[in-house]
């Protein structure tokens, strides 16, 4: 990573920290400890299942909300407040700015997810008193959640590069919801006929496939994740994020900062 990208990324991370974005960890900690104590009292033999399901879903949801609401302002806020003027009048290329912002937000989300992961494992230890081999798959589920964050970050940046924060939020959140049901959309496309089939197939392949990135339920049941899925999901998230980032850069390169 070049110096300027690293500099922009670290400043984006610092902004998130100073804007108290990481305070969500407190809410997460309260939620998880409450849940761990509660399920310990009311569940029989399914404590781990509940804690993993609840913990990982919370990690995902908290992260998605941060990715969308911080991501949509990454470019538009800089334009609106004109902080971008003093950055782009320096030897900083526009693509470096976009990439720097992406890494900054992705870094914030990874740190956030890491802290939450510690919480999830802490809660697991509390309810089960020891770790077992299948608990290792929780790490894979966390990795997939981080891949999800990277896609959402890049999409939020893409929308932020040409749209207002409100519209960007609507677009990004809609894509997240549709993407979550992308498997159903693909099944529907397979069953549909004629024009509907074409449209449904196009949409199914265009929206991010978050279904494939969600292995929370199977991991909670102690089922392993295949190495093929890990490789496929890694490549998919990388390619999808890169394409969204390229789109953001192409739009931003041509944008007049009035």
């Amino acid at each position: 990573m070049n110096n300027r990208i690293a500099c922009i990324a670290s400043n984006t991370f610092r902004e998130a920290v100073r804007d108290r974005v990481l305070y969500n960890l407190i809410a997460f900690a309260v939620l998880l400890s409450g849940a761990a104590i509660l399920v310990g009292q009311i569940s029989i033999d399914i404590e781990k299942l509940v804690v993993i399901n609840l913990g990982l879903t919370a990690v995902s949801l908290f992260g998605v909300v941060i990715a969308i609401f911080v991501g949509i302002g990454l470019v538009s806020k800089e334009i609106e407040k004109r902080t971008l003027y003093t950055v782009l009048s320096r030897p900083v290329r526009r693509w470096e700015f976009i990439i720097g912002k992406f890494f900054g937000l992705a870094g914030t989300l990874v740190v956030n997810a890491f802290c939450m992961a510690i919480g999830v494992f802490g809660a697991l230890l509390y309810v089960a008193h020891k770790f077992q081999k299948p608990d290792g798959w929780v790490l894979v589920a966390l990795y997939f959640i981080i891949l999800q964050f990277l896609i959402i970050c890049s999409l939020a940046l893409l929308f932020s590069s040409f749209s207002s924060p409100l519209l960007s939020a609507v677009f990004a959140f809609s894509l997240f919801v549709i993407g979550t049901f992308s498997e159903d959309l693909r099944n529907f496309a397979a069953m549909a006929q004629g024009m509907t089939k074409w449209v449904a197939t196009a949409v199914a392949y265009l929206v991010p496939n978050f279904s494939a990135l969600n292995v929370i339920s199977s991991v909670a049941h102690g089922q392993p994740v295949s190495s093929q899925l890990i490789i496929f999901n890694s490549l998919y998230a990388l390619l999808y994020s890169m394409m969204a980032l390229c789109g953001a850069i192409l739009i931003f390169q041509r944008r007049n900062l009035k």
């Binding site: 300027r4 902004e15 003093t86 950055v87 320096r90 030897p91």
Partner: peptide, 27 residues
């Protein structure tokens, strides 16, 4: 070097941090 009209800077930074940030961007 460029000073925009009615400049607005990252207000979560201190004056030193802001200048260090811009300095690094300028090499």
């Amino acid at each position: 070097g460029f000073l925009p009209e009615q400049p607005y800077f990252y207000d979560y930074l201190t004056a030193r941090e802001l200048l260090e940030y811009y300095g690094r961007l300028s090499g």
